[in-house]
């Protein structure tokens, strides 16, 4: 293990503000990468993602391991790890079948 890698490992374990990489994947498979601090509210990421893809944040749903991400969640509150994935789903509706 190089010194640099050793440093990242240490930071990850000890520094709550060390950034992690998060992959956001849309329903159609497009990926957007974010680097955020473990203490950053994920509502920020949700807003940034929505404006990047030009969608209203209320029309999309962010899921981490199937659980809906709430505005106050942070990577650290969700026990997220480096390189984890967030799924973006779109609103679903139904009434009958045409």
């Amino acid at each position: 293990m190089s010194d640099e890698e050793q440093n990242t490992q240490d930071i990850k374990a000890e520094d709550p503000n060390a950034p992690i990489n998060v992959k956001v994947v849309s329903a159609s498979g497009e990926e957007v990468f974010f680097k955020i601090k473990r203490s950053t509210k994920l509502s920020k990421l949700q807003g940034a993602y929505a404006s990047k893809v030009g969608k209203d944040v209320s029309s999309i749903r962010f899921l981490y391991d199937g659980s809906r991400i709430q505005d106050d969640d942070t990577p650290s509150s969700l026990d997220m790890e480096d390189n984890d994935t967030i799924d973006v789903m779109v609103e679903q509706v139904g009434g009958s079948r045409s």
């Binding site: 679903q92 509706v93 139904g94 009434g95």
Partner: peptide, 8 residues
Amino acid sequence: VNHRNQHW
């Protein structure tokens, strides 16, 4: 189960 965004 959502069917093609039309039916539950």
